[in-house]
Structure formats: structure tokens, C-alpha cells
Design a protein around this nucleic acid. Structure first.
Lengths: 155, 155
DNA sequence: AATGAAACCAGCACATT
DNA sequence: AATGTGCTGGTTTCATT
């Protein structure tokens, strides 16, 4: 499979995944292209939905959180839709994904204390079985999406 | 517990978590403050490690990925350090966290095909037991970190 | 710690290739 | 689709409060 993007666009994506606040002129300098040309490529990637947004990353531990946890949940029957609705409004839940396998959902959440974690669990237990794992450390906090070097064979 | 940040800084964080490419002047307009004042607050939050970076978000499905998976792994003894070392260099692994509980690690990875997934699993199985769940959908893709309204009681 | 002024530089639109 | 130009507006520094 060929990459869907050319090398120049991948270089732009690499730079913007590392630092989303780079100016178009600085971006142009780094990849040897004029600022308007870079801006036009970025605009097209935004329009195509390749770039979905630019987000400042906040360290939760610097603003009051003491723990980040993964919550694995299994719901039954009617609680399924209720859960997806309820978790939208729980600020502590940063992500929620529906999965194959025996865990219906996995969520990442930040809490400020054990008491806070307990109150969060209390809101979820009526909707299914809840299993909490606390993050001890993160060997890979974030890795940027890169151009595939060459994809493994596929039929 | 009082919030560690005042309301103005929280408003800046909210805006920058939503759109990291906002100019200081636009930011200033939104929160009724001069551009240099906003820039100075942002600079201090960066310096304090509250803002750890600004990142463009790339839709993996628009650049060749067909699946996002969670990989849960348990290692034994000597493979522990080897695993943390090896996963640093696997581009497909976007995140890796060490957890309490029976799963030593949880990772998020993107792959372009089933064959690609199989080759990724092949690289990991020598290091421990591997359990894959495929993301079907993401009811919460990302939620910004917000000011705690009032923390639950804690001793 | 915020403001306002000024110098500098970036963004944007347009004409050109 | 990239470049260069020129105008508009943003960023940054500094003096002031």
C-alpha cells in the first residue's frame, strides 16, 4: 500500500504533532517551502479531516489530579445507551472507547483523591461491572502518528 | 481543596485545549485581556509544566490505519525492562502505561491491516502474555481537563 | 502582573508561473 | 500547486502603573 500522503505533507504533520503552535513561516523554513504554500497544504489536510484539531496538553498532576486510572466496564442490555449518555457529562472521564472482547468499555479518567475515585465509581456501578487500574507510570506518554515505512504484506 | 489556578488561567487552558493555534490577540479578546498579558500567563504555565505541549491531532483512519487497538500485557521478571525499551521504538504504539492490577501494561496502537496487527503481536509475544481488544467506536474521543467545581471531601 | 506604544514579523489574498 | 508581493494584523519588548 502506498502512503496516502506525500513526504512533504508527512513532514508538516510531524512538525505540527510535535508543536501545534508553529507559525506557517517557521514551518516553511523547516521544510524549505514558502509560508503560503505550507498554509495551503495545512488547510487542505484540515478540510480532508486528516488534521482534526490542535490541542494544548495539560499535565493533570499539576492542576490538582493525583491519579490517572483506566476503568474497564461491562454493561448489560438497557444500560448500554444510558452509559454512553452519562459518561459524556462526567468531566473526569477524558476518553471512552467501546471494545471487542469481554470488556464493553474502557475509559481513562483523572481524579484528585481516593474519595474522588470512590465517588466516580459510585456513579458507574449502577450501570455495570467496574474494574479500576491505576496508572503507575507511562513508558510512552504519546507517540506521533508517522508515515508507514512499508506496510506488511496484505491480501 | 482550592484550585491551583485562578479563573483566568483556567479560561486560557480551556481555550488552548480546544484550539492550540489561537493567537494571543484572539485569546486576549475572548477573555478581555491584552495580548501581552495573555502571552505572559501562557509562558508561565508552560514554564511551570502545566502546559506540556501543543499537538496537532491526526485521524489515523485518514492516513492508512484501519484499526485502533488496546493491547494489555503481562510480563514476567527480566522481560519487564526489555519491554519498556522495545516499545519506545514501535511506531504503531501511541501510548503505553504501566498499571496496578493483573495487567502490567496497557498500550494503544494503530495498525493498517490484520496482517499488520499480527506482525505487531508477533513482536510482543516473546515478552509476555498479550491480550488484544479492538476499538469499535469512541463515545468520548477526548475531554479537556477542566477546573474542579468543588472537590469531594478528602481528609 | 496588566497595559499601551512601537518595532518587527507573520498571515493572507492576489497576481504570476 | 508553489512563489513573491504588499497590505493587514499579530507578536514581542519595554516603559509605565
Amino acid at each position: 500500500m502506498e502512503s496516502l500522503l506525500d513526504d512533504i505533507s508527512w513532514r508538516i504533520l510531524n512538525e505540527l504533532q510535535r508543536d501545534a503552535r508553529l507559525s506557517y513561516s517557521e514551518l516553511g523554513r523547516r521544510i524549505n517551502m514558502s509560508a503560503p504554500a505550507v498554509a495551503e497544504r495545512v488547510r487542505r489536510m484540515e478540510e480532508a479531516g486528516i488534521i482534526t484539531g490542535y490541542h494544548a496538553t495539560v499535565d493533570p498532576y499539576k492542576v490538582g489530579a493525583t491519579m490517572t486510572v483506566f476503568i474497564r466496564m461491562t454493561t448489560v442490555g438497557g444500560n448500554y445507551d444510558r452509559l454512553t449518555e452519562i459518561i459524556q457529562h462526567i468531566n473526569e472521564i477524558l476518553e471512552c472507547h467501546r471494545l471487542t472482547g469481554s470488556d464493553c468499555f474502557i475509559m481513562k479518567a483523572v481524579v484528585s483523591s481516593i474519595a474522588h475515585l470512590e465517588s466516580l465509581i459510585q456513579r458507574l456501578v449502577p450501570l455495570g461491572s467496574v474494574n479500576i487500574s491505576v496508572i503507575l507510570s507511562s513508558p510512552v506518554k504519546r507517540h506521533t502518528i508517522t508515515k508507514p515505512i512499508s506496510n506488511p504484506s496484505q491480501s
